[in-house]
Amino acid sequence: MIDKQSPVPIYHQLEEKIKKRIETGELMPGDALPSEREYAEQFEISRMTVRQAITNLVNERFLHRVKGKGTFVMEKKMEQPLHGLTSFTEDMKARGLQPSSSLIHFEIIPASSDLADKLGINEHGPVYEIKRIRLAEGIPMALERTYISANLVQGLTEDIVKDSLYAYVENVLNLKIESGIQVIEASTSNAEERKYLEIAEADPILLMERTSSLEDGTRFEVVKSSYRADRYKFMIDLKR
């Protein structure tokens, strides 16, 4: 119950009760919260106090509001460390999650001047263009567009890229992926991203572009990924 004699503000007490329900799993990601009226009646407090508590939890990203539908528990974000070069498949498996990919496009295209420069190949040289939806436990996390020189990585097929591309490159072709440069920025989504990531027009995304190289310095790939900002975050471990 709410202790109305406590020096702790009533709205804060309600916030802590809702947080505890989320932390213990009583309220799961995607669950709808009771209405403001229901909370007000249950704890015999004003709806204004309830509204303040819920607004604070929305601002802290424990909850989110959907216009015309109500307030829901936020989906837990996947956290990706930025101190190592790993594939999406490796990253999800390390978290005990089941990764999967849905291949939506696979073909060899002539490299544009920009892409040729990033891959260190001749303009119009053959490049694999691979588009995949990356999922964790069946939930879409990212739309990924990968570009690799077809002269460097030969024999690539749709079946291979449906699984783990890195595993094929390193374990079958014996090419060692050594390093990468990654740039991340926030953006609004386009129609393709909204379609495959199942997000609304106003929902933000995180854009990531990575250029990876082999141990001998050969440019290996350019990856352009669009991550759902409500389900993914990046973490950097800094040391002085």
Rank of each mutant, 00 (worst) to 15 (best):
R21L: 11
S35N: 01
T146A: 01
T24S: 15
E123R: 15
K19Y: 04
I139F: 03
R132N: 06
S112N: 10
T86R: 13
A142L: 02
I205L: 06
L103C: 01
A200W: 11
Y232A: 13
I133E: 11
T49D: 05
I133P: 02
L165D: 01
I109F: 05
S179H: 01
L207T: 06
R21H: 13
V153T: 00
P81Q: 03
E41H: 13
E198K: 15
M141I: 11
N174P: 04
G68N: 06
V66H: 04
F62L: 04
K224I: 07
K176P: 03
I160D: 00
E178F: 12
S46G: 15
R95W: 10
V8I: 15
N151D: 08
Q80C: 10
K4Y: 14
N56I: 08
S6R: 05
E198I: 12
T89L: 03
S100D: 13
S113G: 13
M78T: 14
L27N: 11
N122V: 09
E36K: 14
A150S: 11
I45P: 04
G84D: 12
L14V: 07
E79V: 15
V66R: 09
N174W: 07
I104V: 05
V8L: 12
S87D: 12
Q42I: 08
L206V: 06
Y168T: 03
I184K: 14
M28P: 05
Y227K: 03
I133Q: 04
I181L: 14
F43H: 06
N174D: 15
V223A: 07
M28T: 11
L214I: 06
L206Q: 05
I2T: 06
I139E: 09
R61W: 09
M78V: 11
R61D: 12
K195N: 09
Y232S: 14
N190S: 08
I130K: 00
G138I: 09
M208A: 14
L214Y: 04
